[in-house]
Design a binder for these strands. Structure first.
Lengths: 188, 188
DNA sequence: TCCTCATATGCAACTCGTTGCATAGCCAAG
DNA sequence: CTTGGCTATGCAACGAGTTGCATATGAGGA
């Protein structure tokens, strides 16, 4: 249940409400873990029941009240324990790759538009990551020197950047392959 | 439900039993989609019930009998329909990245062994992929010219290779960062 | 002979994750 | 003044995925 741990990390970095967590999962934390608001609310409730989190009701003006969650002792201990346990290297789940291999049983050229769309999405994500890197870590507004937490956030973001660059290059390879298959193959 | 589609692709490439599919999901198909045998058996049963697959009981000597599944008309149509529908670009789930960011609230240097272990696993996987590429696509034993299906399998495998190379380089970056944080930071 | 390993299939119970829906306050635009 | 949008929380139902267990055949080795 890595969602629990992702929530602990995020709340340790900064306490917040379920709604705010959901927004973070669309941005920074979401670079490497995703969750919908329903899932987050459900898990927050369970974690509070387990004594890992504390809640504080915050009354707000000009918007609905919210519940601010923060990590308490046992939550920190649970994170620490998890950090000491080994985890299995990730296994990939790439639906587009299934489609590409499936295209052999259909018309491969029909996939070109789809792959171009994915390339665009990854290209947008890369631009977003690079803007965040400049803003938070490498630009003139960024704090210097970075503390350990910021260094670690930065190296994770560099991973996201590397992933998007690799993916874009691969999708170009896929597009070239699909286009080559669409035209008659020249024989020597 | 991409598992269904991954199974359709795999069975179109070659009919087989649940057990054989489970083995493929540890190898070639497993490069981009994973599944356990329990999941596979359950889904195969459902797909057969839905008329997407046909079964044939095969009696074997020196090992238990098996059921060989193959794709029939409606299954092929279901795959074709799915290929024509757009899918969302993948969202990443990277547990190790959660750990790295969480290490800020513990001792970062404790993660070094863990990251080294992951690096080794990815390195092994890369070697495995490269051996497969040589065997099936680029070596002297490989068929020439490749047909469309093989070209598409190859480009997916190139994606796996690119992913592993990128990941190894990133893990080296992570290790360098963890080691830097472990030693006192030199001030200008 | 007994044990282990590989093949082969499956149930049951559980957790994780998604989708659709519902509610409610407040603001700004039309 | 109604509509749409953003903040904020939540339920219910379902499907996806994991874990543990159970069963059976036959080969090979201790």
């Amino acid at each position: 249940m890595a969602l629990e741990h992702a929530i602990l990390v995020s709340l340790l970095e900064k306490p917040g409400s379920g709604y705010e967590l959901a927004r973070r999962f669309e941005r920074s934390i979401g670079y490497f873990w995703t969750a919908t608001h329903q899932q987050i609310y459900r898990v927050l409730k369970r974690m509070e029941g387990d004594g890992l989190l504390a809640v504080r009701a915050l009354e707000q003006q000009s918007r609905p009240d919210k519940k601010e969650y923060s990590v308490v002792g046992p939550g920190r201990a649970a994170l620490s324990q998890w950090l000491h346990e080994p985890i299995e290297p990730e296994s990939i789940r790439h639906e587009l790759a299934v489609k590409i291999r499936g295209a052999a049983f259909d018309d491969p050229s029909l996939l070109i538009r789809e792959v171009e769309r994915h390339r665009q999405a990854h290209s947008d994500r890369l631009a977003h990551y690079l803007a965040g890197e400049l803003r938070d870590f490498t630009g003139p507004e960024a704090p210097t020197p970075l503390d350990a937490g910021q260094e670690l956030q930065h190296v994770v973001l560099r991973g996201g950047i590397a992933y998007e660059r690799m993916t874009i290059a691969w999708l170009d390879d896929v597009l070239a392959t699909l286009r080559r298959l669409g035209t008659p193959h020249p024989r020597p």
